[in-house]
Design a protein around this nucleic acid. Sequence first.
DNA 1: ACGAATCGTAAGCAATGACTTACGGTAAGT
DNA 2: ACTTACCGTAAGTCATTGCTTACGATTCGT
Lengths: 109, 109
Amino acid sequence: MDYEDAITALADPTRRIIIDRLRGGSLPVAAIAKGMDVSRPAVSQHLRVLSDAGLLTVTPKGNRRLYAIAPDGVDGLRRYLDTLWDDALAAFARAAAEQAKENANERSD
Amino acid sequence: MDYEDAITALADPTRRIIIDRLRGGSLPVAAIAKGMDVSRPAVSQHLRVLSDAGLLTVTPKGNRRLYAIAPDGVDGLRRYLDTLWDDALAAFARAAAEQAKENANERSD
DNA sequence: ACGAATCGTAAGCAATGACTTACGGTAAGT
DNA sequence: ACTTACCGTAAGTCATTGCTTACGATTCGT
């Protein structure tokens, strides 16, 4: 299972902020950390977690390191949630049908 | 933001197991806890977290309480990931185009 | 070649959270 | 009515983890 690391990584608010900052495209670490309420090393640690989870790609560019969102990592989570969504809807429909049948029995009592 | 509670709730492995057990339909607490490697009160606490996050619905049924996956809660997370997916793909496409342009400049040097 | 900039890592600390045991409260069975 | 079953909550403990400061390594600029 790979989506598990992804969902664990995205559970942290600071990491979601980092992800949001990368929505527009790749950024170096200093640019990501700028204006955030945690130190730059903290951001580095979060970037490590996000990379290990497959949510970010790193491309060394001379002095700096550019981080970007990895579409594949996001897709893993999307697929997990899609199956969950399908099962939830199916179970919901069955429960609704069951409830309707019970109501019909009540009326016939 | 509501999806934040949902993703935090799903970050825990035990809670994901609980969710998986509810994929087939609603279950009482004892049935969920049966065979799991944590105590029943622990399951109760997890069910509380999942409910507060909007991922589960509770319907008291006489002596027992039936828990079921709430499609709406799952949908909130799906929408968040969809926007993330869209932005990631767009950024990826821009980066690819940029890279192609750089390569063209290199060949012309 | 030397100083400045960019970044990752190590060590230590404080806070969050997941678990257990113990308990109380409500509904079902006899 | 009394016992049993089902379930949530409280209190306390222990591991996890997110943060800071300090440091070392690599690259850019002059």
